[in-house]
Design a protein around this nucleic acid. Sequence first.
DNA 1: GTTTTTGGCAACCGTTCGGTTGCAAATATA
DNA 2: TATATTTGCAACCGAACGGTTGCCAAAAAC
Lengths: 106, 106
Amino acid sequence: MRRDVFQAIADPTRRDILEMLAKEAMTPNGLAANFHTTRQAISKHIKILSECQLVTQEYSGREIYYYFNSKKLKEVDKWLQPFREMWDKRFDQLDTVLKNLKNKRS
Amino acid sequence: MRRDVFQAIADPTRRDILEMLAKEAMTPNGLAANFHTTRQAISKHIKILSECQLVTQEYSGREIYYYFNSKKLKEVDKWLQPFREMWDKRFDQLDTVLKNLKNKRS
DNA sequence: GTTTTTGGCAACCGTTCGGTTGCAAATATA
DNA sequence: TATATTTGCAACCGAACGGTTGCCAAAAAC
């Protein structure tokens, strides 16, 4: 079972969940109310997000509030970095991009 | 068949392929030589990358050179933007992030 | 104490995924 | 022309994915 951030954000529903949790911590039921699926389906998504630490939890009686953890998204940002330079700056080809990738591998 | 950039980069082999193509255009055989799988497996990955326009192709006789298209990765970058502000700047919580997400939805 | 609400867990189902093998088409080489 | 190389396509396989239903435990409400 591969479980990394890239795979976690591959699903559009999970991306929506992350966006909602970024605004405010929510319970599984609270989240599920915003989707056209069952609570269990959402719970499965939450479990995946938890496993790669994109969300954390906090118990409050019988309710569980899930919190978004932005730090883990850094991994994606980091991977994106060398490519970003390809469209960001004046050079729209290799050059420093190439160097960065080579350093990365060494 | 859902075929978007997020799903395309979910697979580690495909991310490796993109990094290689960012350095230089390559043929399926050339790419496959760098992996411990069959050429056909790599071809399948290339097909997926092609379908969401992360790579383009150019024929040269019987060979096909695949090129990396960085522009499509902007979609990921764009989605990441509001979250990036959560770890980049002084505020490590909502605020402008919240605003950005709300504008995005409207 | 009974009932309702919240939420996890397990089993199941159809589909997709990543991979392999086999084959055919097209180009290059002998 | 015969042969070898490059590549895509189709069929198949086991595993994972996304979803559902059913059930049970714990906390809250009555």
